[in-house]
Amino acid sequence: MDQDRIHAQKPQQDPENWSTGQIESIRSEDGHCIVTVHTDEGLIELTVTTAIRDLFVSRLPTTKEESPVGEVIWFKRRGRH
């Protein structure tokens, strides 16, 4: 399965090649993490590993107790898109 790329903060290299969106939901499916993001074009689903989910969620400006829903992320879609 092709994986998308997600960052919790604006990428320093080639930021013009990244899109932004607001997290609508995060769920697990078939051993992967599906992040639904609201963009100017509508809702899209991004697929990442659970390790990447843990990494970008830990870098968001939220506490462990707070939900990442509503936070802005930067992303690149890969492979199947």
Rank of each mutant, 00 (worst) to 15 (best):
K64A: 14
L60E: 07
P68K: 05
S67I: 05
E65L: 15
E45Q: 14
Q22H: 06
V57T: 09
E66L: 13
V48K: 05
L46N: 07
I26H: 02
W18S: 06
H32A: 11
D54L: 11
V35C: 03
E66A: 15
T63Q: 14
S19N: 13
W18L: 08
E65T: 13
G21N: 01
E66F: 03
R53G: 01
F56R: 09
T47D: 05
E45R: 15
V48G: 05
G31P: 09
S58Q: 12
S28P: 11
I52S: 14
T36Q: 13
I23P: 02
D30F: 10
T62Q: 13
T50K: 15
D30H: 13
K64P: 12
Q22M: 13
L43R: 15
C33D: 04
E66S: 15
E45T: 10
S58M: 12
S19C: 11
G42S: 08
K64D: 13
G42T: 06
T63D: 14
T36D: 10
E65D: 15
T20E: 12
I44P: 10
R27S: 10
A51K: 14
S19G: 00
D54A: 12
G42E: 04
T39K: 05
L55I: 00
D54G: 09
K64M: 12
S58H: 10
T63V: 04
S67W: 01
P61Y: 06
L60A: 06
G70C: 08
S58A: 11
S19D: 11
P61F: 03
L55E: 10
R53N: 03
G21M: 03
L60N: 05
I52V: 14
V69N: 11
L43H: 09
T49E: 02
T49G: 10
T63N: 14
I44F: 04
R59K: 15
R27E: 07
L46T: 02
I23T: 05
T50L: 14
A51W: 08
Q22P: 00
H38T: 09
C33N: 07
V57L: 07
I26E: 06
S67C: 10
E41L: 15
N17Q: 14
L46I: 01
E29P: 00
L60P: 09
D40H: 12
A51I: 09
V48Q: 05
P61L: 08
P68G: 06
R53E: 01
E41C: 09
E45F: 00
E41T: 10
R27M: 07
T49C: 04
T62C: 15
A51L: 14
V57Y: 01
G31M: 08
L60S: 03
T36L: 08
V69D: 10
T20A: 06
S58R: 11
R59Y: 07
D40Q: 14
E29H: 13
N17S: 14
